[in-house]
């Protein structure tokens, strides 16, 4: 396993739309191991997407288990993930390995359903909420060439309770 180099904004390659994985073969499995190694080398980071390391395939990893205060499904490797439904919204603070030294508030769906293939190529589906749902939406955005800084919301917001968790 190797730690892969992270592309950093304003690298144009972060704007590239990633392609679906056609078959989960040894090459993909090997890449996933490298992506996991890269994620685990970044303290405090809960997700990574393949295009962040210059591999433009629709693969993301999300693992919120280090923050047990948030509902989560553990270590998730999702191939060709698709959000099949979304509900509610919440504003929360996000940062990104590809955008160092900046965090900002982004509005995301509070509840999502996501379908994907797992690392073995089997179909999986999850219902998620809050922080984990935010992480999934952030990573899927990477697959479509979008960054959290494209969707920042201002500071002077209403007094209603915002979920920044």
């Amino acid at each position: 396993m190797v730690q892969l180099e992270i592309l950093v904004y304003p690298d144009d390659r972060l704007r590239q739309v990633s392609q679906p994985v056609k078959a989960v073969d040894d090459k993909i499995t090997g890449f996933i191991a490298d992506l996991e190694e890269t994620l685990s080398s970044q303290p405090g980071c809960v997700g990574i997407a393949a295009p962040q390391v210059g591999n433009f395939l629709r693969i993301i990893i999300v693992d919120v288990s280090s923050r047990p205060q948030h509902k989560n499904h553990g270590h998730l490797v999702l191939i060709n993930p698709v959000i099949t439904s979304k509900k509610g919204s919440s504003v929360g603070r996000e940062g990104c390995l590809s955008v160092p030294d900046y965090t900002g508030k982004v509005n995301r769906s509070q509840f999502i359903e996501v379908k994907a293939l797992n690392r073995f190529g089997s179909k999986v589906a999850f219902q998620m909420e809050g922080y984990e749902a935010r992480a999934i939406q952030h990573e899927i955005d990477h697959l479509d060439g979008k960054l959290f800084i494209d969707n920042l919301v201002g500071n002077r917001n209403s007094l209603k309770k915002r979920n920044e968790l």
């Binding site: 970044q42 405090g44 980071c45 809960v46 997700g47 990574i48 997407a49 999300v62 923050r67 205060q69 948030h70 929360g92 603070r93 996000e94 940062g95 990104c96 390995l97 965090t103 922080y131 935010r134 992480a135 952030h138 990573e139 990477h142 007094l159 309770k161 915002r162 920044e164 968790l165």
Partner: peptide
Amino acid sequence: VHLFPIDTMVG
């Protein structure tokens, strides 16, 4: 006074 924790999601 409403007090909220902020847990920044870094991905």
